[in-house]
Amino acid sequence: MGNKKSKEVFEKFTWTITNFSLLDSKIYWKKFSLDCHTWKILIFPKGDEGNYLSIYLEYPGAALMPQGWQKFANFKFILVNQLDHTKNIINETGHTFNLGQDGFTSHISLGDRYGFIVNGVCIIEVHMQVDESGRKIDDDKVVESIENVSPEEMISTSSFGEVVDFRDIGKVEKDFVPLLEQACSRYPSLIDIKKRKSRRFSEWGFTALGRVLHFLNTKKVRDMDDDTCNHLQALWEELEAFGFDLAWLKPHVEYALGMKNRVEKVLEVKKLEESVNVLKKNVNTLKENVTTLEERTKASRTKMIDAEIKLEKTKRDLEKAKKGFEECDLDAEMGYGKS
């Protein structure tokens, strides 16, 4: 039987990053699809030394693949010189993604930023080519990959506390049970997973569901910053892999993920309101000062008018006094008794 030729699949992903110079040392990421798989490109704007842009290509689904699964990819990272494309920085390589190697990192020097960051904008391209073989893995194969992992080990990554039995499905964390009971009562189709999948798979699936429900039940609006949204996105993507009908939950997750922008708007409005209140106080203080100055000016004007009247009166008195006036030396001696 001859070897079946595999088809190669190519994808080009462009990420335009605005306000790049203002980014801090946190991780920023975007997703794209290739060969029916979702990939992530992550950047560390400050790199390891602060003078490097670190780019990380990751396949998050590798953790759910069966033992022995692997996928080889040729790819290149391109830091685009927006003023001269002949000066683009290109890092090209190949990498095998598997259970132990789900990502690859590349470092690009940012010593000379001319042309690479223009008006605060940085452009990164990822060109990626993979073998089409080993496409989407069936859930039953995913079961094989976790069959040798104990329930305690699987749920240790979120370890909220005590583990208990849930509806004869398997062990889940105690804190999740009330939320899972409520969800299963409203959406009985969730329980069907235990009819279709192994106990281990069901435990893992309901743990993933419990994590998302617990997140939505405990987080506050003010908590939804970049890191928290990224965490929820990761939990949601993990949950989707288990094949639940999540149409009822998706709007809640999308609402929570969109909360970051709402929080930013609220904070912006509050900041502007505070600025308005401060400016109002300043205006009122200035008005009071102006009123005080006006009153002082009015009083000074009155005094000035009185002084002018007195001046005119005194001038007239002076003119009268000068009539018939004969100049004399007030210090001269009278001369009495002198011959």
Score class of each variant (00 low, 15 high):
Ala241Glu: 13
Ala183Trp: 12
Gly61Trp: 01
Lys87Ala: 08
Ala256His: 01
Asp331Phe: 14
Arg113Ile: 08
Ser275His: 10
Val276Phe: 15
Pro151Ala: 00
Ala332Asn: 02
Asp24Phe: 02
Ile155Gly: 08
Phe32Lys: 10
Tyr114Met: 05
Val212His: 00
Glu58Ser: 11
Gly2Tyr: 11
Asn81Trp: 07
Tyr255Pro: 00
Phe72Trp: 11
Gly2Asn: 11
His231Ala: 10
Ala63Lys: 15
Asp175Ser: 11
Phe72Asn: 15
Glu58Pro: 03
Leu257Thr: 02
Asn284Arg: 14
Phe201Arg: 03
Asn230Pro: 01
Ala307Asn: 11
Leu64Arg: 14
Asp140Arg: 13
Glu295Val: 02
Asn98Arg: 05
Glu92Arg: 13
Met65Gln: 14
Ile146Asp: 05
Asp223Lys: 08
Asn119Asp: 15
Phe13His: 15
Phe325Asn: 10
Thr93Asn: 11
Arg167Glu: 12
Glu162Lys: 15
Arg167Thr: 00
Val163Ile: 10
Thr207Lys: 02
Leu311Asp: 12
Glu125Val: 01
Ser150Asp: 02
Glu327Lys: 13
Lys313Met: 04
Gly243Tyr: 01
Lys313Phe: 03
Val164Asn: 04
Lys7Thr: 13
Val130Ala: 09
Leu249Tyr: 02
Ile309Val: 12
Pro60Trp: 04
Thr292Leu: 13
Phe201Gln: 08
Glu132Leu: 03
Asp175Val: 07
Asn148Arg: 07
Ile78Asp: 13
Phe77Met: 04
Tyr187Asn: 13
Asp226Ile: 05
Met304Asn: 11
Val143Phe: 09
Gly47Asn: 04
Ile193Asp: 08
Glu254Trp: 02
Arg211Thr: 03
Asn261Ala: 14
Lys174Gln: 12
Arg301Trp: 13
Met334Leu: 12
Ser21Val: 04
Asn51Glu: 14
Ile191Asp: 09
Leu239Ser: 03
Lys287Ala: 08
Gln82Cys: 06
Val163Gln: 09
Pro45Phe: 05
Glu49Gly: 04
Glu333His: 10
Ser106Phe: 00
Trp69Cys: 00
Val164Lys: 11
Glu319Trp: 05
Phe75Thr: 12
Leu110Ser: 02
Thr314Ala: 11
Lys298Phe: 14
Gln67Cys: 07
Lys5Ala: 15
Ser158Gly: 14
Ile193Lys: 04
Thr157Lys: 15
Asn282Gly: 15
Asp329Thr: 05
Phe166Asp: 00
Asp112Phe: 00
Cys229His: 00
Pro45His: 05
His107Trp: 09
Glu238Gly: 04
Asp227Gly: 05
Lys171Gly: 10
Asp112Thr: 04
Lys310Ile: 01
Pro151Trp: 00
Asn289His: 14
Ser339Pro: 13
Lys12Thr: 09
His37Asp: 13
Lys12Gln: 11
Lys31Phe: 06
Glu203Leu: 08
Ile193Arg: 09
Glu153Val: 13
Lys5Met: 15
Asn81Pro: 05
Pro188Val: 02
Trp29Met: 05
Arg296Cys: 08
Lys4Pro: 06
Asn81Phe: 08
Met1Leu: 12
Cys36Ile: 03
Leu235Asp: 03
Asn289Leu: 14
Ser159Arg: 12
Arg262His: 12
Ser300Lys: 10
Leu213Glu: 05
Gly120Ile: 10
Asn119Trp: 02
Asp84Gly: 07
Glu327His: 10
Asp317Arg: 10
Phe72Met: 14
Gly337Leu: 04
Arg211Trp: 00
Glu308Pro: 01
Asp48Tyr: 05
Asn74Glu: 15
Ile117Asp: 01
